[in-house]
Amino acid sequence: MMWTYCEQWNNLTETPMDPLTPEQAQARHASGQLYTAVAHAAQNSAPALRVGIRLETGYASVIFMDEYGRDTLDYTFTLINGSLFLETAASYTYGDSQERGGYADADRTETYEFTPDGVMQRTVEADDEESKESRHSVDVSSNWEPVPSFGAYDSLIRRER
């Protein structure tokens, strides 16, 4: 996996906003400022995923992208007692659409929201309808992740959770 860095990713243009050198990104990581690490499978290949980190506000996200540059899976973490907790997991499907990046509208969104005390709410949006369900006493022990060192995102970017 090859990493490039920027302040943020622009979904519409599928390009980095304010590119950063690895040294600048590392300084932002150390100070808690926002930066985005973009993973490429090979040099000059389309991005496979991106990691957004802003430790000063206790935020981290991992967003997996498809071959059209669209977000397909989004994990959002929040910092609690020195560890990251997976608070939201959202998946997006686009049917037969081949629209690119931020111009595409998902035809189905499935979102899971978790609390550290084991409450999970699932929301499904499809065909202009929304359904919700909640569960209690859910085992959320696998939702915890250590805060990664700069560049050491392997545990955070696990797709299967």
Rank of each mutant, 00 (worst) to 15 (best):
S149P: 06
Y59P: 05
S141V: 08
W144I: 12
Y59H: 09
R122Y: 11
A60R: 04
T13L: 13
P116K: 08
P146F: 09
Q26Y: 03
L34E: 05
R159E: 04
A46Y: 08
K132Y: 08
T88G: 08
E23H: 06
A152M: 07
T36F: 03
Y68G: 07
A106T: 02
A89L: 12
E133H: 09
L79D: 07
G69P: 01
V138A: 13
V140E: 10
R159Q: 05
E110R: 09
V124C: 01
G82Q: 04
T88H: 11
N81S: 15
S97N: 01
N11A: 14
T21N: 03
L79I: 10
L73T: 07
R50Y: 09
M1F: 10
V119C: 09
I53Q: 05
P19A: 02
A46T: 09
Y112W: 12
V140P: 10
S141Y: 11
Q24F: 06
A126G: 01
A106C: 02
S155W: 10
D127I: 00
G95L: 01
E56H: 09
E14A: 13
V138Y: 14
A89Y: 08
K132E: 14
E23A: 11
N143C: 11
T93K: 01
E110Q: 08
V124T: 06
G102P: 05
G95V: 03
T111F: 00
M65C: 01
T4G: 03
D107I: 11
R161A: 12
A25F: 03
Q33G: 01
Q33K: 07
W144H: 13
L34R: 10
G52E: 12
F85A: 09
E160A: 05
H136D: 12
V124I: 11
T57K: 13
M17S: 15
T78N: 06
F77Y: 15
E125G: 07
T57R: 13
E160I: 08
T78V: 12
E87I: 08
A89M: 14
N10G: 13
G101L: 06
D154C: 04
F150M: 00
E14Q: 15
A30R: 04
Y112N: 12
N10Y: 12
P22C: 01
D96M: 09
D107R: 06
D139P: 13
V119L: 13
T111M: 08
R161E: 11
S137Q: 15
S134W: 05
E145Q: 15
F150E: 03
V62Q: 01
Q24M: 06
A152E: 09
G95F: 02
N44T: 11
